[in-house]
Write a protein that binds this DNA or RNA. Sequence first.
DNA 1: AATGAATGAGAATTCATTCAT
DNA 2: TATGAATGAATTCTCATTCAT
Lengths: 208, 208, 208, 208
Amino acid sequence: MVYNEKQLAIMEAAEALFAEQGFNGTSVRDIAEKAAVNLAMISYYFGSKEKLLEAIFEYRGEMIKVKLEGIIQHPGATALEKVNLLVDHYIDKIFLQQAFHRVLAREQVLHNNPDISALILKMKKTNQELIAKLIHEGQKKGEFKKNVDIPMMMTTMMGTANFLVTSKHYYKELSNLQSLSEDEFEKHIRKKLNQHLKNIFKNILTNE
Amino acid sequence: MVYNEKQLAIMEAAEALFAEQGFNGTSVRDIAEKAAVNLAMISYYFGSKEKLLEAIFEYRGEMIKVKLEGIIQHPGATALEKVNLLVDHYIDKIFLQQAFHRVLAREQVLHNNPDISALILKMKKTNQELIAKLIHEGQKKGEFKKNVDIPMMMTTMMGTANFLVTSKHYYKELSNLQSLSEDEFEKHIRKKLNQHLKNIFKNILTNE
Amino acid sequence: MVYNEKQLAIMEAAEALFAEQGFNGTSVRDIAEKAAVNLAMISYYFGSKEKLLEAIFEYRGEMIKVKLEGIIQHPGATALEKVNLLVDHYIDKIFLQQAFHRVLAREQVLHNNPDISALILKMKKTNQELIAKLIHEGQKKGEFKKNVDIPMMMTTMMGTANFLVTSKHYYKELSNLQSLSEDEFEKHIRKKLNQHLKNIFKNILTNE
Amino acid sequence: MVYNEKQLAIMEAAEALFAEQGFNGTSVRDIAEKAAVNLAMISYYFGSKEKLLEAIFEYRGEMIKVKLEGIIQHPGATALEKVNLLVDHYIDKIFLQQAFHRVLAREQVLHNNPDISALILKMKKTNQELIAKLIHEGQKKGEFKKNVDIPMMMTTMMGTANFLVTSKHYYKELSNLQSLSEDEFEKHIRKKLNQHLKNIFKNILTNE
DNA sequence: AATGAATGAGAATTCATTCAT
DNA sequence: TATGAATGAATTCTCATTCAT
């Protein structure tokens, strides 16, 4: 699926608004206004508000897949280094596409739309398969322990990162970091999160 | 604040529906029907749909506070044992009040309503202060390491647990556990999560 | 089903507008304006525009049934006299409720709404059964011929009357009666139609 | 007016859809799709949806006129035979062009569009003049009675035939002919209608 | 001659809330 | 205290038509 400029503008505007106000809290009017397109264009291009959401999921899902596929094939790296690379990339991704991950965080709680649920499941499966490959590679080489609960590990990575991104506003106050600028603060928590997750993973994967 | 039976019925119905369909996806008609009260009662008792949500947060926040205060004062237990108790209780709580935690997970992403945001912040602060007390106690006794990133630890506990609860539907499929009944599956993931978090915390708090 | 004043006002307004402009050609806005009620009342009372149409059919169908039941039980009249009475009444009805019969004429051509189709069929069945009763009575007494095609007879009565009512505008010009006032013209065609149908029926029922 | 292939395709598609769903119930999108032409072609060729309807009326009106003119000049036939021929032809026409007659039946009830009304009136006048010619011929020859209500006679022919065609769906059920195939049923009612109308006309025109 | 893209107007419906009782 | 009736505002979506190409 290739999208033209207007379609991309609509998708971006919608993503940002869905992240801020939720799907139901966002009207197609808002989206049209933000994307600076005619109201009717949204139905014209996507059919409905729901279909627009699906298009966003499909689009981002495809992007994520392409990105992750690159990571796994990194040459000349140990399994643990690759896991660390994965953490780096996952954190990069989640911070770069905060809007989309907010939408994802919100929508995965609901199961109103089976098409969206299917897309989310597909995305998660792709992620999981990639990580599983990495872990198994490390286990074969003897780098990692045998019994590793991969789904729970993923849950920790995604859960922690998601929670941090979606509630960073609260985190800032709880850590008394109100003095930092938004950029400084973001840099700070990215670094913290990175170390934190790598620590946890190293422990889970290698400590006896 | 003391609520009468009808008010509690409304709050429970609303909580369940907000968890399922989101705040904006739920109409006061739905709530009135589910709670078997007159449509106008909701405005009458709570003023508005938003105020109803606030009441739910306030109510649940108070319940959580009371519960957690009990935990910290558990006599004759090491700091690590108390931390483990805390994990037990947090997991109990999140599974028992899944509806509320779904609402919380959804609403913390948005910052539309400053009153709600303030309530969430207050709740988080209370939690954090409790854990901080525990950790400092352990540090004083020499049980725990000096440099512990408490907010990040909390983020992992809440993020992982939240993520698991809100996306358990996907977890079931990703782990090929479709054959388990809902109850069996829930028991299974509670146990896994419990071990998983305790492991992580032990490592964070004690390993050098 | 008992309707309150506002509901009746809506139904009357809708009937008139549907007759003039067709169902799809009439907006709920038009109806609300004509009935002098709030726009949302229509959804509130009837659920939707379609359901409103159904309500009209049901209401009129019931009225027709009640009326016709009276005719058949007219005491001390020959079968032919009763048939003539029926013609009188049918013509009265069709002229008095021209709006409804226009709607009926339009909607019976379409089969979009199965509920409406079912209501129309029911109405027609009731009519047919009544006439069949009359004819059979006359046949038993030896007043009428044996082989009478009752559905075709009804088709002629209804078709002719309907066609006249719905296209009286054209009839006026074709008969060069433009000089007559609307009332005079209507009186004129009612009389003509009455004689015409009675003639045809007498011939069908009695001539060998 | 000569139409090219695409124009004819549009008109045919439109006629069929107008017959099924009514004028307002049919969108130009539907027509374009059914006719397999570009959406904008309809405005391009006909100017508007209304003008397209007018074109259909004009086109069919012309066809009817040409056909009927042939009938009247049938050589070596009595006036009654010619009337019978006319009935044959009218029934043929109405069954062959059911779609158009459904549109006609629906639209003659409305008077929204004066151009359409004018076209219908013209069509009816042409028909009427033809029949009047026939009847007067028969009256001159002494075959027919003097006082014949020609407009009412036409009303019966058209009303009965129209009503049968537009409500044949109901007629089938009312006559308990559900077991017949669509073709058999149509053959059956055409025959019935033919005899029925000829009977009525014979009686009107010749009986004293 | 033909069309894909675009749009303003208007459609039906749902919503949270109010108010007289 | 409780509620049925009512409503204004806002919702999503579809429509016939236009226009640059």
